[in-house]
Write a protein that binds this DNA or RNA. Structure first.
Length: 922
RNA sequence: GCCCAGUUAGCUCAGUUGGUAGAGUACUUCCUUGACAUGGAAGGGGUCACAGGUUCGAGUCCUGUACUGGGCACCA
């Protein structure tokens, strides 16, 4: 339970086993209690992020975990950099999605929302949201999200609601919001209109029915094809292309509409593609957007045969009352039995479905609220064109701008109850829009024209109609699209329209972090609203991350049953491992497939970090941190050994690289660099090398190494903290006795600064040679199957003058001996080489392991022949290149020189090999 | 139909300005040595989807093809 041992045990030893569950639970409340999540008052510049508010429905899924992890990495990083950092959390009421959840609950009680009535239903909604609305926020805490919870918002709290009303009233006043009858996408299941962008297209198997429409007079006929035969009852024309010779003579004549008593005209319209099907189209103005437009052009009547409930209307005659799909079946049967059905084809169609419930959309004419988008959209597009809103990765800019350029007006009214009710009021003398589904187009036009009072848009509940003084005011029944309030989120969270300090300090925010699936639905609209109401963009950067997919590349979804629950991963591998894994997989511009391998890798990395920290700590017992050296002491240059200079150089590269990667929204690169440094450099080499000094009998060398280890580890912890906050904080606490600092928590330590003075390319190259020699010896031992426990002597012939000093250095020699399990290392010339030996080469010379009884001459010969074959291949390739005159003449001189050097090295190695092979046979 | 990505080791994926292809995992061999077997050392394994082109040189740049995924439009 918790990490109380940290506070209770004076030794502060890290437990032997890394168990994330124990170390992760304690820090969050401590950080929060310290007020670290709130913006510091003394930061130089503000840095703010506003969370994409998750719906109050459901709980944290992997997409949320990714989104939140990336935001938290940025937030923690900027906080460490000393910025006045704020991450605002909150939730979205989620409109239709949330209402659907509660309606489902009602259904299990055999009730509908209409049974309850609006008021009781909304009570139910609020109760439900009170019970489960904060679940996801608790889970974000669990993930480590360093949000400022004192600023938590909900899109339907009073602060946000007021902003919604204010925005609506202002837009209405400018004439940018209007109401009117239009053809909209209607979801018969959700019982509401949807915006175009809320309609998804799914490929579904369908049929194309060919139906014969006989001419009213004479014996001719026209064959039309349709995927929705039930709409034929609402046909008011058949259209053909004016240039289609097949039908030229028929234009203006009338057809008998099968199954009805009606006749309909044949009209010519250029929207008809003569090449498709029969070239003749049945026209149903009341039930199809294209037909609606044809109908407008030709003055065709609307015959509404499908109602808002998805059932056939009275106008559908004997089919009235049937569900639209049952009616389709019946109509096809009747057409067939009466000889009107010519043929039926299989047909693949992109069905328009509701993005919330996948029900097939019915295009219907209805009276709705719309928002004019052209002007707002072009300003938004301009903001990206001139760089005020930059999108990362930039490849999303083109589709984003193209969407804005081709925008159509936004249907913002919804016929649901959960949401912001439209702040428009009607008196008895004003036009009242027809209740959806009950009136036709013609009715509402009439009512609108004759009303003496105008509807009243008002932020606060008005007392009376300003025109006629009536106090009998009725509010509009519709609620706003949930994305309307989301669009105001970046400033409504700061109490707009109040000019609060927060609004002034933190708007515009620095970055919006989101997936590309809501780029248009949400991001574009925030930019438009920000420009409109704040006269500035809502964020400078849009960081678009990938969508989490499963191993088959499918989007994770409950219905597919392929979800990986982040809570399970946290339980199994730890939160830090989950975070690291998400960050490391988050390649810019690409969706990610998370596999168990990825979590495993991250968990093992966390474990490695834990253990190297234990190693450092176990070796600090006699170490006193130097005083008055600032928070972390860099060892004095004169005490630095080769390996120290090398790791400092590598650390500088890592600091610079990680900082650059985070700044360019590339957490995968940052994670990769940290993994490589921590594991590949620190653990694999530096720690091993340090054992020589730590176990040796030179106290000053020991102390210097201890200082180095503390410094390197502590810096690594800081670099890793934004990604793995819990583990790094735990380790940091255990390291505090040696830090010579008043520091409290790692979370608020400064981000490491790259220090060019610590770069040391020469030492780096020297150390690489040491690595090269050690690896060569290890390989040799492994190939010759010398057990690790067996120590041997080593004889080196170094033919590069520049390395002889290095290999003469006692410390370097001790290092090589330790790492390669060598007893006695001798430097000499070729003529002194031992008589019996194992042999290999490195980039600067020859390595002999004098090992008389270990040499099996036959095996050794085979081994060396194999090595020779490899080298010869390289040599042939290298020679061919250098014999190519074009290469010599055209390639950069440096490149050619490099090749020459490499070739010389290879040749030399080969010579040595050949000579030793001779020696072996002789 | 248009546009955008992707195609690299058995698997999951990196690869910045063109210069002899990398990681994790899996596999083989050796090792439980006082940080770590959730580990260490070494090794095998790749015509970088295909076909052209540019270039001294292409995984990387250009064109085309195939397949996969995504976005947009049409869909009577």
């Amino acid at each position: 339970m918790g990490v109380f041992w940290l506070n209770e045990l004076p030794s502060m030893e890290l437990p032997k086993t890394y168990s994330p569950q124990e170390t992760e639970s304690a820090w969050y409340p401590i950080w929060e209690a310290q007020g670290y999540f709130q913006p510091s008052v003394d930061g130089k510049v503000a840095y703010s992020i506003v969370i994409p508010p998750p719906n109050v429905t459901g709980s944290l899924h992997m997409g949320h975990a990714l989104n939140a992890t990336l935001q938290d990495i940025l937030t923690r990083w900027h906080r460490m950099r000393g910025d006045r950092t704020l991450w605002v959390p909150g939730t979205d009421h989620g409109g239709i999605a949330t209402q659907n959840v509660v309606e489902k609950l009602l259904r299990s009680e055999k009730m509908t929302r209409f049974d309850l009535g609006r008021e009781a239903f909304l009570e139910r909604m609020w109760k439900w949201r009170g019970e489960s609305g904060d679940t996801i926020l608790m889970q974000l805490r669990r993930l480590g999200a360093s949000c400022d919870w004192t600023r938590t918002r909900f899109t339907m709290d009073e602060v946000c609601s007021r902003a919604v009303r204010e925005a609506f009233v202002r837009l209405y006043g400018k004439g940018l919001i209007y109401r009117g009858p239009r053809m909209v996408n209607w979801c018969p299941r959700c019982q509401t209109a949807l915006a175009d962008i809320e309609v998804e297209h799914e490929d579904r198997a369908g049929k194309l029915w060919h139906i014969r429409y006989p001419l009213e007079k004479g014996t001719g006929e026209i064959i039309v094809a349709t995927t929705r035969p039930e709409t034929m009852l609402g046909d008011t024309a058949v259209a053909v292309n004016p240039d289609d010779p097949r039908y030229a003579s028929l234009i203006g004549q009338r057809l008998r509409l099968p199954l009805t008593e009606r006749t309909i005209p044949i009209v010519a319209d250029s929207a008809v593609d003569a090449a498709f099907g029969t070239g003749a189209v049945k026209v149903t103005p009341a039930h199809d957007p294209t037909d609606f437009e044809i109908g407008e052009r030709h003055g065709l009547a609307h015959v509404v045969v499908i109602g808002f409930d998805g059932k056939m209307t009275e106008q559908a005659g004997i089919y009235g009352g049937l569900d639209r799909f049952d009616a389709r079946k019946r109509i096809v049967e009747d057409l067939e039995s009466q000889g009107y059905l010519i043929k039926t084809e299989d047909y693949k169609l992109a069905a328009a479905v509701c993005y919330r419930c996948a029900t097939i959309i019915e295009p219907l004419v209805s009276d709705q609220w719309f928002m004019s988008m052209k002007d707002l959209a072009s300003r938004a597009a301009q903001a990206t064109r001139d760089g005020r809103v930059k999108i990362f990765p930039a490849s999303w800019e083109k589709p984003y701008i193209s969407w804005l350029d081709n925008i159509r007006d936004w249907c913002i009214s919804r016929q649901i109850w959960w949401g912001h009710r439209i702040p428009v009021y009607y008196c008895p003398n004003s036009y009242v829009p027809p209740r959806t589904g009950s009136k036709t187009l013609a009715d509402s036009k009439h009512l609108s024209a004759s009303a003496p009072c105008s509807p009243l848009a008002s932020v606060e509940l008005p007392e009376r109609c300003p025109a006629c003084g009536s106090t009998e005011l009725r509010q509009d029944e519709d609620v706003l699209d949930t994305w309307f309030s989301s669009a105001l989120w970046p400033f409504s969270v700061f109490h707009w329209p109040e000019q609060t300090d927060d609004l002034k300090s933190f708007y515009p925010t620095n970055v919006l972090v989101t997936g590309h699936e809501i780029l248009y639905l949400w991001v574009a609209r925030m930019v438009m609203m920000g420009l409109e109401f704040m006269n500035d963009v809502p964020f400078r950067h849009v960081y678009i991350h990938g969508i989490v997919r499963d191993k088959q590349g499918k989007k994770m979804s409950k219905s597919l049953g392929n979800v990986i629950d982040p809570l399970d991963i946290m339980k199994q591998y730890g939160t830090d491992a989950l975070r690291f894994s998400l960050a490391e997989s988050s390649i810019p511009g690409r969706d990610m497939q998370l596999s168990n391998d990825s979590f495993l890798k991250a968990r093992n990395f966390a474990n490695k970090l834990w253990n190297v920290s234990r190693f450092v700590q176990m070796n600090l017992a006699d170490y006193q941190s130097p005083e008055n050296r600032g928070p972390v002491s860099t060892p004095e240059p004169e005490h630095l050994a080769l390996a120290d200079r090398w790791i400092l150089d590598a650390l500088q590269g890592t600091i610079a690289g990680v900082t650059e990667a985070l700044g360019s929204y590339n957490p995968a690169e940052a994670s990769r660099l940290l993994y490589e440094f921590a594991w590949g450099s620190l653990c694999d080499w530096y720690v091993e090398v340090s054992k020589v000094a730590l176990t040796g009998n030179d106290p000053s060398a020991r102390t210097a190494k201890q200082a180095m280890l503390v410094y390197i580890l502590e810096t690594t912890l800081r670099l890793l903290h934004p990604t793995m906050p819990f583990e790094t904080e735990t380790i940091y606490q255990s390291l505090k006795p040696w830090l010579a600092t008043e520091s409290t928590h790692l979370m608020i330590q400064p981000w490491p600064q790259a220090d060019p003075s610590q770069c040391d390319a020469i030492s780096a190259e020297k150390f690489r040679l040491v690595q090269n020699i050690v690896t060569a010896i290890r390989t040799l031992r492994s190939e010759a199957i010398i057990p690790p426990a067996t120590r041997t002597d080593c004889f080196i012939v170094c033919s590069e003058a520049r390395w002889t000093d290095l290999l003469g250095d006692a410390e370097v020699r001790a290092t090589i001996c330790f790492l390669a399990k060598i007893d006695q290392l001798t430097l000499g010339t070729e003529k002194d080489r031992p008589a019996e030996f194992l042999f290999t080469v490195f980039n600067g010379g020859e390595i002999y392991l004098p090992a008389q009884d270990l040499v099996d001459k036959v095996k050794e010969r085979i081994r060396l022949e194999r090595n020779r074959a490899q080298l010869e291949q390289l040599l042939t390739k290298g020679r061919a290149m250098l014999e190519n005159r074009d290469f010599i003449e055209r390639a950069p001189k440096e490149e050619v020189d490099n090749r020459r050097a490499t070739l010389r090295e290879t040749q030399q190695k080969l010579d040595w090999l050949a000579r030793n092979l001779e020696g072996l046979s002789g």
